[in-house]
């Protein structure tokens, strides 16, 4: 080993000065680079973290905005009306998520039976229709199944009264529309996990005298389960936070958590921002819970399959 210093002797003082010079230059450059990060940091504080903190803080104030209290949370949990909003949101989200997952599990499995080209086409249809949501989707359902909807009129003229007791602007209508926008998303999320089930596993299972049914019970479904659970939590969160679809379909005629929050923070009649903040905190907590669950499930998939 040859020491560089011994080969080319530099007076220690000079080396020190040079080193300091370089260090100062690097430090200056780093400062310059840090300055370039400033706009990003400002946006994050101003529009992401700041508002979340403001909402959390605001939820612990009384209606006058001065007194610190947990009154807002007590109000929610004591009021039948707000509890019902939470319950309606939970039920509609659970119901639409479960239904869509079941349909997606079956449909995505059917997808895998077709040629790769057709599979890609089908996925493209799912992708395209997943963009049909919110206001346009609600409108579409209104002209098809609303009071004067095409199907409503058509069926009543044909003498079929399937839609006689049906009301689009109600719980059943909401469920129907929610399921519609959840299905394409569910298919896109579940479809990839079918790629993880190898043909050889089926062969091995049948070599060991397993039937198709026993394969799915003991191997197929357990392998799919984490991704089904993860998809479920995403769909659940998606429905809990949905606002546009419900707003367009039922306005304020139906008691949902997202509609209540909106009217508490931005309507002219029932403005109670602190109460709205408390409900926002509850909704955010539910969403974070669902995302955390999804994250855990995704980790399991990775450990199981890779």
């Amino acid at each position: 080993m040859v020491n560089v210093r011994t080969m080319k002797p530099i007076p220690p003082l000079l080396a020190n000065i040079e080193e300091r010079e370089v260090l100062r230059k690097i430090k200056k450059q780093k400062l310059y680079l840090l300055a370039l990060l400033l706009p990003f940091i400002l946006f994050i504080i101003g529009f992401e973290i700041g508002p979340l903190v403001a909402m959390l803080k605001d939820s612990f104030y009384a209606d006058d905005g001065i007194q610190v209290t947990i009154q807002q949370y007590l109000t929610i949990f004591k009021s039948k009306f707000y509890l019902q909003a939470i319950q309606n949101s939970l039920v509609i989200s659970l119901f639409s998520a479960v239904t869509s997952v079941i349909i997606a599990v079956i449909a995505a499995y059917s997808f895998t039976k077709f040629s790769q080209k057709i599979q890609n086409r089908l996925l493209m249809i799912a992708n395209m229709t997943s963009n049909f949501e919110g206001i346009p989707l609600s409108f579409s359902y209104i002209i098809l199944l609303g009071n004067n909807g095409l199907f409503t009129l058509l069926f009543s003229k044909l003498g079929l009264d399937i839609f006689a007791g049906f009301n689009l602007y109600s719980w059943t209508g909401l469920i129907l529309v929610y399921i519609y926008f959840q299905i394409p998303l569910a298919i896109m999320l579940i479809y990839p996990s079918y790629q993880g089930i190898k043909k050889q596993w089926k062969e091995a299972s049948s070599l060991l005298n397993g039937t198709a049914l026993s394969f799915w019970i003991h191997i197929g479904i357990p392998v799919l389960l984490p991704s089904i659970a993860g998809t479920f939590s995403i769909l659940f969160a998606n429905a809990m936070g949905a606002y546009a679809t419900a707003y367009a379909l039922v306005g304020s005629n139906y008691n949902l958590l997202s509609l209540q929050i909106a009217s508490l923070v931005s309507s002219d009649v029932s403005l109670r921002p602190q109460l709205g903040s408390a409900m926002g905190v509850l909704l955010a907590a539910t969403m974070i819970g669902a995302m955390w669950f999804n994250e855990r499930m995704m980790r399991r998939i990775r450990r199981d399959l890779r």
Binding site: F47, P51, L52, V53, M55, I261, A262, G280
Partner: peptide, 11 residues
């Protein structure tokens, strides 16, 4: 979700 983000932004 936007509905939660909006609460804080308005505030």
């Amino acid at each position: 979700p936007p509905i939660v983000g909006a609460v804080g932004l308005i505030k």
